[in-house]
């Protein structure tokens, strides 16, 4: 268990902000990357805290096609998708987390889940308007450490 009762309660409280179900597709591979199994277990435990957090655990080797489709080139990795409802397709906003989501980064992962669930950026309208003018893809990478 990663979360004691107090932390579980805090996470549940955050998840109460969710609007749409979210699918967390976690990629791991026990033999080559034992640490990735830790992330898998953590994400699976998150899925027990709210029925709207749907977890799909994938093997990075066996499920290589899905990894490629989701742009997952390394593990551990979590793709945060807005889950499709009533048989609809999942919505992929291109939000990913790579590595061990501990300490500060754990909060970031939770924030990402909430934001994807809402499907609203919360950005300034002028920023949204400017981003709507983009015609070429832009990839953002934010590097952090657990401290």
């Amino acid at each position: 268990m990663f979360f004691d009762e107090e932390v579980s309660g805090q996470i549940k409280e955050r998840f109460s902000e969710m609007v749409h179900p979210v699918k967390l597709v976690v990629f791991s591979q026990a033999l080559q990357h034992p640490e990735s199994e830790e992330v898998k277990r953590l994400v699976e435990e998150l899925g027990t805290l709210d029925p709207r957090v749907i977890v799909e655990a994938k093997n990075f080797i066996i499920d290589a096609t899905q990894a490629k489709d989701l742009g997952v080139t390394r593990i551990p990795a979590v793709a945060i998708l807005r889950a499709g409802v009533d048989g609809g397709a999942d919505k992929d906003y291109g939000v990913r987390f790579f590595g061990l989501p501990m300490q500060y980064d754990f909060g970031v992962l939770i924030d990402g889940i909430i934001d994807v669930s809402k499907g609203e950026s919360g950005l300034d309208p002028a920023t949204i308007e400017a981003l709507a003018s983009l015609t070429t893809p832009v990839h953002l990478q934010v590097f952090s450490t657990p401290t």
Binding site: V108, D115, F143
Partner: peptide, 22 residues
């Protein structure tokens, strides 16, 4: 990192990776 995620949510042209780099 959350801001990058929000940019990705706002635009289909943007993808955002949070990377715990250690």
């Amino acid at each position: 990192m959350r801001l990058a995620y929000r940019f990705a949510i706002a635009s289909d042209k943007i993808t955002a990776d949070g990377v715990e780099v250690t």
